[in-house]
Each structure stands twice: as C-alpha cells, then as structure tokens.
C-alpha cells in the first residue's frame, strides 16, 4: 500500500454503515409487500407477451439498488416475426 492510499483510505466501518443503510432502507420498505420486483417483472412481461411470443429463457433481469435511485433492467430477446425473417 502506498503512503498515498494509506491517508486516503476510507475506514471499512464507514463502508459497512453505508451499505447497511441502503440495504435496510430497501428491505424495510418492501418487507411484507411480497416482492415488488417480482410483481413488476411479471406485469411487464405479461404486457410484452400480449404482443410477442417470447422465450422465458431469453429474459434477463438486473437490479441495482442505490441510496437515491434503483435501476431495474429487463433485457428481452425479441424474436423476429416470420415476415421479418424472410425480408
């Protein structure tokens, strides 16, 4: 470790406190409300399925919980319709 890093280093306890604050804020808000993300995903996919025939194996869902905002990323592989495939 360089002397530079030594002085700039953030105590690990601070990192621990911040991680816990973010995590617990999310857990307390969703507790009891049965998996918000699972419901969201279900409904979003239901809407897509109304228009397209999608393979459940070709769906990737990623989440990143932040202290200000969280991002929910849904990656759906949309198959070409037969007409498009010919063209």
């Amino acid at each position: 470790m360089s002397i530079f890093q030594f002085f700039r280093r953030k105590p690990t306890a601070n990192v621990a406190r911040e991680r816990l604050q973010i995590l617990l804020a999310h857990e307390r808000s969703t507790f009891g409300k049965s998996d918000l993300v699972a419901r969201l995903q279900e409904e979003i996919l239901a809407v897509i399925r109304r228009h397209l025939d999608i393979d459940p194996d070709k769906v990737q869902i990623k989440l990143d919980r932040g202290d200000q905002v969280s991002t929910l990323e849904i990656d759906v592989e949309v198959p070409l319709t037969p007409a498009e495939r010919v063209a």
Partner: peptide, 12 residues
C-alpha cells in the same frame, strides 16, 4: 449476499 457484496443486485 452481503458478505459477497452482491446485496444490491438480488432480484430472485
């Protein structure tokens, strides 16, 4: 998840 630092990314 917390010990591995993946707690923010748990979906399922």
């Amino acid at each position: 998840d917390l010990v591995m630092g993946a707690e923010r990314r748990v979906v399922f």
